[in-house]
Design a protein around this nucleic acid. Structure first.
Lengths: 153, 153
DNA sequence: ATCGCCGATGATATATTGTAACTCTCAATT
DNA sequence: AATTGAGAGTTACAATATATCATCGGCGAT
């Protein structure tokens, strides 16, 4: 790994607090709905689709929450780096350290769906420079690896 | 770029011939429908969705071609390396050199949709080894970069 | 030859994922 | 009290993807 860089990986309530701080710092409100969606997303152990989240929040809150509300809020979260979208799964995952910005790499297990995330700045900056070398202005690298996790292997 | 490696990039009829050879080598038939879909896909200048292809083939052939047939054939093509799926666009692109196997990197312009493909074995093998180092057995790296192409920049 | 099998395709239906347009509510401000 | 604007709800729809069963045509075995 390139630059080490120790994350203290907050979980549960502590993670929500960190997420809230980040979101508010960007001028957005931390509403009840947003908190519920964030906590639900963080509670999944693998990437969740907007519909998974809508269903879980509906059940937990005892009232119907529509998918489009979930999408709005997920988009906001992705923009604020509180969550990431896993493109090859059409699903979202909470960001364990919203305060620090990385291009990240997801390892997605095709058999159990577990998705882990690694940081490797040497690789991601290599991808960015290769794109630049081709006359392209990179905005968002999408680097995901489909395969088998250690447990399923 | 790592290992240079000259592709003679076939186009049009020549590309179809190469695709046909590759597909038949893998024990599959090159049917009229498959040829039409391949040629249609190759005719697009940017990634095409299964529905785009279904529509174009329907128009060209004067009969209705259903999306699911297109999906079946695209899956076959992807499996045989005749086409690639661009995950972040939910779309497909013809592979200009079906006879040689690469992990490839797509540069997708968010403004015009143009998608170019680069090969860089140093990067892709770096991604594979990073995944392996994390106890993961990589099968298919998905490396795409969203951004702006030289023309739109 | 004809019967049955099989791969390819067609037809239909449905599931999943994602957007658009408009409304409602509530709280801050005027 | 009226105005405004952000957040959330409602409804409708579009786009992407899969499942199931039917049909057709070739081809080998009887």
């Amino acid at each position: 790994m390139a630059a080490h860089h120790h994350h203290h990986e907050p979980q549960g309530a502590e993670l929500s607090t960190a997420a809230r701080a980040t979101l508010e710092k960007s001028g957005e409100q931390w509403t009840t709905m947003r908190a519920q969606i964030f906590e639900t997303l963080a509670g999944f152990d693998k990437p969740a689709s907007a519909y998974d989240i809508a269903e879980a929040v509906s059940k937990a809150a005892g009232r119907r929450v529509a998918a489009n509300s979930v999408y709005r809020i997920l988009d906001l979260f992705v923009g604020a780096n509180l969550a990431r979208r896993v493109e090859s799964s059409n699903a979202y995952i909470a960001n364990a350290h919203p305060d620090c910005l990385h291009d990240c790499i997801f390892l997605v297990c095709d058999s159990c769906g577990q998705t882990t995330h690694i940081d490797n700045d040497r690789i991601t900056s290599g991808v960015r420079s290769a794109a630049e070398a081709a006359g392209f202005s990179p905005v968002r690298p999408v680097i995901e690896v489909r395969g088998k996790c250690a447990d399923c292997d």
